[in-house]
Write a protein that binds this DNA or RNA. Structure first.
Lengths: 238, 238
DNA sequence: AAAATATTTTTTGTCGACAAGAAAAATACA
DNA sequence: TGTATTTTTCTTGTCGACAAAAAATATTTT
């Protein structure tokens, strides 16, 4: 799950029509993983060399990333990795919480047995990541776990927005959650368990309650990190 | 507001960096206006001639439209205008109603005076469109009116989704609402008035109530058209 | 030496061309 | 005559090149 994408200089020929897709996927992964710093400029020519393909498919990949808000294109100037929007964190938390609730509720009513199986598999993966203390995997699998629940709800309008929010959350968590802390993962694990149970039981009220609780938990976590960060900066700057 | 975009064969030179933008805007407008039929293929070469520019900027515009779901790209095959998704109308209505409520509520708390002025201007435009019995303008201005309210709420995650939903709704209304009917526009006008008042008064509860009511009104309208349409088809086919 | 102007370098937006796939047409085969 | 196979045509994905902006550098002017 944590593939090393060091050098993409592929001497072997790539299949036609795979170009933009691979560039898009890899860049997206690196942006969400903070492998590329928010705000850092993206050099088209360098990507040209790295992926050994012309600028045309690379530009198309960047256009795609831009319309998802993952990069920002300054006309006639460089495109940069989207900076993390601290101004509107409150709006982010608000939307995230609502989408957590709505998607989990819908999942409880629309889920199939096959979907429950898949969700439980992801839950297991998360458990493994926790026991391995693999922060990177935890963040990524956590996102996939909730995205899978949302998909079981079947409403693509909600899932699209929710996935966008989860991705943004992934960057925020990645930013702060570099050192492992064992209290929270266990709490999340328990909440995940409750959530799956509610969805499996088709208990909408319970699903809603736990989704809200879980969302608030994550919001609190991020806010705590930010506060801590502020304090640190305050010490240094003032 | 209802410009005629007949021939884009611009002999005069276009400013650099304006290419993709114009193509994107014009195509988007035509797709939402049903000038281009849902499902109909998009010929890159024809667009090349029409806009008198090379395929590169046109493709970038199509990529942008694709990532907004307005066109669908079949790999190595043609890209087509996104078909209207009748399968998931229920999900569409659900999301639309929720976004109506959430954005109007937020507008009631976050709106500034300047925004109220702009909203009232759009309300006036809608009124004009109704008295002129200009269906096309009514549908378009109605969308802009609600989008403006949503923007006053300031949460970009909600506004982005809501605008996408309003656009999809625009296509649905355009599809059925070809002949003018004077009952509904007046009803909408009254509801709009109530909505603006609630937002201006910062009355969240009222805003929520009216938003929900208005959404359900629109949902009912579309559903009525679809039912009517089914009956018509039934007569012919069976 | 600092500010303003001119020049060079770099980077982006667009172009025309070509090759890989898919669709359509033509041919062969039963 | 209908089906399978080959050939041709058409469309898409990618490429390398070039020109317009912007940025960086050098030059002139005060």
């Amino acid at each position: 799950m944590a593939e090393i994408i060091a050098t993409e200089a592929t001497p072997a020929k790539r299949r036609r029509g795979q170009g933009v897709g691979t560039v898009y996927e890899i860049l997206k992964h690196e942006i969400l993983d903070l492998t590329i710093q928010p705000g850092s400029p993206i050099d088209e020519v360098k990507l040209t060399e790295r992926f050994s393909m012309s600028r045309t498919p690379i530009r198309e990949a960047l256009v795609k990333l831009a319309s998802e808000g993952l990069v920002v294109t300054l006309p006639n100037r460089s495109t940069v990795v989207a900076p993390i929007d601290f101004q509107n964190l409150a709006h982010f938390f608000d939307a995230l919480t609502l989408m957590y609730r709505v998607t989990t509720r819908l999942a409880a009513t629309n889920r199939t047995e096959a979907e429950i199986v898949r969700i439980r598999q992801l839950q297991k993966s998360y458990e493994d990541a926790v026991s391995e203390k693999n922060v990177s995997a935890m963040i990524e699998v956590n996102r996939d776990f909730h995205a899978e629940i949302a998909r079981a709800g079947k409403n693509r309008y909600y899932t699209d927005l929710f996935e966008r929010l989860l991705d943004e959350g992934r960057r925020l968590l990645r930013l702060y959650y570099s050192s492992f802390n064992d209290e929270l993962p266990q709490l999340y694990l328990d909440e995940h368990e409750e959530m799956v149970q509610a969805v499996a039981d088709r208990d909408v009220a319970a699903a809603d309650r736990i989704a809200q609780q879980h969302a608030q938990q994550i919001v609190r976590q991020i806010q705590a990190y930010i506060t801590e960060d502020r304090r640190l900066n305050a010490d240094i700057q003032l």
